[in-house]
Amino acid sequence: MDLLLLILLLIVTFCSGSIIEKRHFKNLVSREKALLRFPTVSFGAKKTIPDKKIVNVRMVCGEAVIGADYFKCFVSNIKNFFGGRMTSYESVMDRARREALLRMRENARGSSIILNARIETVMVNDPKNPQSVPQCAVMAYGTAVTYGK
């Protein structure tokens, strides 16, 4: 009975997880296309272009918390035994980072450039409970600068 329940849970979470993930990736791609170059995100630069008039300077942030599903967790636990790439978690991290970055850029709409963007990652799972499904929380922030015409 327990085994049956586990199999059912795995099937359900596999379906739900992959549907949600596919939708999210589709959504991310379309939003990334819409924002393609505006504003430019610069990860290293801290200086603005000289001789340009600066209209506005402000800080922009974006957050996202994405959870892995039960199926991913189950598969990764098996993977963990043998070692190697845990592709199921890679996609979770990727989605969280891209979502946070996109939200930051959406908050910076209208500015010319985001300087010194940084990404902060926290894995929020209960360390005392190895059964808990990991979540990935990402915070992206940077300085949005608007140049005058």
């Binding site: 849970l9 739900s16 994405i66 959870g67 039960y70």
Partner: peptide, 20 residues
């Protein structure tokens, strides 16, 4: 519950936003 099926945890994102 959301964590079992996967996807974004909106309430935790809000938590992070208000905390920030």
């Amino acid at each position: 519950l959301k964590n079992v099926v996967g996807g974004e945890l909106k309430s935790y994102t809000d938590l992070l936003t208000t905390a920030r």
